Amino acid sequence: MRLCNKLLYNYKTVLIPLQTALQDLKLRKFSGKTQVMDIHKEIAKLREQTHVLARLKTKGFLDEAKYIEQTTELTAKINKLQTDLKKLTRSDDEDETLNQIEMLIDFFEMRDKPITKFEESAFESIVERIVVINQHELEFHLIGGLKFKEKIK
């Protein structure tokens, strides 16, 4: 819970710059292919629309049914573009990491308050495993290849 709350308050300064850096690296790798860059730009635009919808829903400006309808449509478009992109780039590991970072960002964007009790489904969706470093420290391995150490009392 403590790690999740730390990330909740800091995901904009940790996860979003990481996502941007990974996307930039991937773009540089395929910078000669304008079609690849165009697809990346379109995916980024659609993801931003998804984030805007999440914020509108969290603030109560968008009802659940309309939110689901619109995010389902955007997700379908993103998935089609990612399929096209994979055909062009053939870099499944990089795509998977970026997708998992995006899932983490979405997880924290949907939350508007700190976690006060253990949520098993949330835990299982973002934590791959926990490694015991010693009796005072744990290392959490999250999706996207991220590792965070947390002191325990």
Rank of each mutant, 00 (worst) to 15 (best):
L3A: 06
C4Q: 13
L7N: 05
Y9I: 14
Y11W: 07
P17Q: 04
K29E: 15
S31N: 04
S31T: 00
T34G: 00
Q35A: 09
V36W: 03
D38W: 05
D38G: 08
D38I: 08
I39G: 01
E42I: 02
E42M: 06
I43Y: 03
A44V: 08
K45M: 09
T50S: 11
V52G: 01
L53M: 07
L56H: 03
T58E: 12
T58P: 00
K59D: 15
G60C: 07
G60N: 08
L62Y: 02
D63V: 02
D63N: 11
E64C: 00
K66R: 06
Y67R: 00
I68P: 00
T72C: 05
E73K: 14
E73R: 13
T75S: 14
T75Q: 14
K80S: 15
D84H: 11
K87A: 15
L88K: 06
L88A: 06
T89D: 13
S91N: 12
D92H: 05
N99P: 01
M103W: 02
I105E: 01
D106N: 12
E109L: 14
R111H: 13
P114L: 14
P114S: 11
K117L: 11
E119Y: 05
E120R: 10
E120Y: 10
S121F: 03
A122M: 12
A122F: 12
A122I: 08
E124F: 07
I126Q: 01
E128H: 12
E128Y: 10
R129S: 14
V131G: 04
V131C: 09
I133D: 13
E137W: 04
E139P: 09
H141R: 11
L142G: 03
L142F: 12
I143P: 04
I143C: 07
K147L: 05
F148T: 02
K149M: 13
E150K: 03
E150V: 12
I152R: 09
I152S: 01
